[in-house]
């Protein structure tokens, strides 16, 4: 135990130098703040229209009910705006005729939306009454993808940074000095992964609080962290075990990170019958756990089932990884 704590203290002292620990914690929290600030405008992004001030004021007022209207001085200004890279249709008037101005490469849904909005405004009266009923408090798909991706990234960071510590030691051969002490391989791995877990816990709690507010179920968040601990350890071993230097570590991370993030996100776009293809991935269940925690229960599996599956599957992966990388972490001929 003493040796484990000793290694952790040493790692912490190293990380505090050059402010690495600070970056580690601040960067994801800062990202969370940025996402929180921009997400509402991304989510509510619907139709944007460039509208000529020459139009009838009632038309302009009416269009404001359907789109974000950018009022421009005249038809020429609107034409210039429509020609810009983004997909913003224009509304101009020529000899009393209202014209929907399109560049020609707008997505079909934007063209349709612009047309129906303008039609509705011109028609004036409506014949159908509308009611809106929300099934749940759940968020848009985009909100889920962006926020949960950041959460998964936060869960990953501690393991990656601990992996880099292992590589630093291999690079400088300091690990050889550790290998000729009473420190055992399991103590070494434990120290590295416990520290990774603690760092991850700080980053994840901070990120979750920023993104979702203080009303989250912190007990479940702790459960998520504990269930993710084996995945964190897995990352630490993969990065530290398969790389002999920082350069090859980047290569390993470039393979690992997309696989870790993309698999669960891809499952959101796949029909129910194909979900089984993802069942063997612990990060898929980790993602379901996070969905359950932050966006309410979902139909794939209840929160505690997702937690159990995350634990079990990641334990299997970890055991395999320890067997493969154990010899690569510390030179141990005995």
């Amino acid at each position: 135990m003493r040796q484990i704590i000793n290694i952790m203290k040493q790692d912490l002292a190293t990380a505090l130098r050059d402010n690495i620990l600070l970056y580690m914690i601040i960067a994801p929290l800062f990202l969370a703040l940025v996402i929180k600030a921009f997400l509402p405008s991304i989510e509510s992004a619907g139709l944007n229209l460039a509208v000529s001030a020459d139009l009838d004021s009632e038309i302009i007022a009416g269009l404001n009910n359907y789109a974000v209207v950018e009022l421009l001085e005249d038809n020429q200004a609107v034409t210039g705006r429509v020609e810009m890279i983004d997909a913003v249709p224009g509304v101009i008037t020529e000899n009393g005729q209202i014209i929907l101005l399109l560049e020609g490469n707008e997505p079909e849904d934007i063209i349709d939306a612009a047309r129906v909005a303008l039609t509705a405004v011109i028609e004036g009266e409506t014949i159908i009454s509308f009611e809106y009923r929300s099934l749940d408090e759940s968020a848009s798909l985009m909100r889920e993808i962006i926020t949960l991706s950041l959460m998964m990234l936060a869960l990953l960071l501690g393991g990656v940074v601990s992996g880099f510590n292992i590589i630093d030691e291999k690079d400088s051969k300091a690990v050889n000095a550790l290998a000729v002490t009473p420190l055992t391989l399991s103590q070494y791995i434990t120290a590295r992964t416990v520290l990774a877990f603690l760092i991850t816990a700080i980053i994840t709690s901070g990120t979750a609080t920023i993104l979702f507010g203080l009303g989250i179920d912190y007990l479940k968040l702790v459960a998520v962290l504990l269930a993710s601990s084996l995945i964190i350890a897995f990352f630490c071993l993969v990065v530290g075990g398969f790389s002999n230097n920082q350069v090859s570590a980047i290569a390993v991370i470039k393979v690992l990170m997309p696989a870790y993030m993309v698999i669960p996100i891809a499952s959101l776009f796949v029909s129910e019958k194909w979900q089984t293809a993802f069942y063997l991935f612990p990060n898929y269940w980790q993602f379901q756990m996070l969905r359950g925690l932050f966006f309410g229960e979902n139909l794939v599996a209840p929160f505690w089932w997702s937690l159990l599956l995350t634990l079990v599957l990641s334990a299997v992966l970890l055991v395999v990884m320890v067997k493969i990388t154990g010899g690569r972490l510390m030179p141990r001929g005995r």
Binding site: Q10, A13, T14, R17, D18, E169, S172, K173, A174, V175, N176, A177, V180
Partner: peptide, 14 residues
């Protein structure tokens, strides 16, 4: 045992 290595293998930041 105590081992002194040929190439210094220290923690540079400590």
């Amino acid at each position: 045992i105590g081992v002194s290595f040929e190439h210094p293998n220290l923690y540079a930041k400590l």
